[in-house]
Simulated scan of single mutants.
Amino acid sequence: MERLNWHMADELSEYADVHLIGPSEAEAPKPQRVKFYAAPLKPLWRFLLLAGWQAMRQARNWKPDIILAGSGLTAPIALIAARLCGAQAAAYVHGLDIAVTHPIYRALWIPAIRRLDRVIANSTLTAELAKQAGVRADKIRIVHPGVTLPEHPQPQEDINLFLQTNKLTDNTILLSVGRLTTRKGLREFVQHALPAIVEARPDAMLVVIGDAPSDSLRAEVQTLQSIQAVADAAGVGQHIHFLGIITDAAKLACAYECAALHVFPVRSLPGDPEGFGMVAIEAAAHGTPSVAFATGGVIDAISEGQSGRLVASHDYHALAQAVLQVLNNAPALWRANATTFAQRFAWPVFGQKIRAAFKSDVI
């Protein structure tokens, strides 16, 4: 989310003066053209108070034309500040920004989102949730998150080193990247789909990058230990390898590019939607197709038959068969098609769509 907001500010700064209020920890990577005002992130109530004060101050002194909240959480701040100076009030919203069921949030935040002049949804699902929450359809625009397209593939020697270091040289790699939450469904994939995949492809290795979140507003987690225990019980304990969190961009790129495919077994859970599925776009940018359940915003992030395969939610037999089909059929073509699909989400394209979401006479 932080990376998305920085890219949004950076792209908009090509067309307008941009001031941004955000967590003090997020200042280091800020774009040069953007003026930044910091507010400590923790505790959250303090961040909201200080960010709100900064927004009111900017509204009075700078008088911007648009005040854009980076998520639904800061939408009330954007609304109040915009009303102080006559600016357009907008928010870029994710699935959980609308779907959160907490009574205080629904009583205070959802009405504020309804009153915004523009609601930019990250997916078709999020747009539909916004309509169901009472946001007028004419206020809503859909702009999918962007992705950084690699300038070139990783050097083969770097990929070989990554494989050797992690003892993966002789494996067909199924990659999972992301937080280990209940919604992401990795434990269920290991239990219900991985055994059939391993039976057909004994060299298959599920490589997991990520960990259970320690600081999340509401996500329920799946621990490494619980996933390994399920793998052991299913007889595939030797076919799963945890790499933890990788922050080095080059190493993460090597992981994507040495993988045969990316598995994305997101579950369909009431009140906990997958707003988009950014990791599937990141995988496609590196030429790695994804196999996933067709749920939530994932259907916008994977093009069936081009950047991967989509199967009905909770059908683990179909999921396993889709994985095997991708592994066994024209891997070079899958890679080429996935890369082509990812080009639709390049950050400059994202910036153009964000700009188009506002009235042309403003930005």
Rank of each mutant, 00 (worst) to 15 (best):
K131E: 03
T169P: 11
L174D: 07
P265C: 06
A250S: 15
G244H: 08
G178N: 12
A39H: 11
E188K: 01
W334T: 09
A55F: 05
A356K: 04
L333R: 15
S123P: 02
E257I: 10
Q343V: 06
L269P: 03
G271S: 05
Q343S: 11
L96K: 01
T288F: 04
T295N: 05
P145L: 05
V323K: 02
Q352S: 10
A82S: 04
K139G: 03
E282V: 03
K251T: 15
Q156R: 06
M1F: 09
S313V: 03
C254I: 11
L324N: 05
Q154M: 09
E257R: 14
N166I: 10
K131A: 02
P64L: 03
E257Q: 15
A234P: 02
H94G: 02
A196G: 04
P145H: 12
L324T: 04
V198N: 08
A69D: 00
I245C: 08
V263N: 06
L50C: 12
T288G: 02
V135I: 10
I197H: 09
S307N: 00
N328I: 04
V147S: 07
A75I: 08
S268Q: 14
R106I: 01
T288C: 12
I21R: 12
T181D: 04
P265N: 10
T181W: 01
I113L: 01
E304W: 03
M56Y: 14
L125G: 02
H241K: 15
E2A: 13
L129R: 00
D170F: 09
W45G: 04
V221A: 07
I209E: 09
T148A: 10
V18A: 07
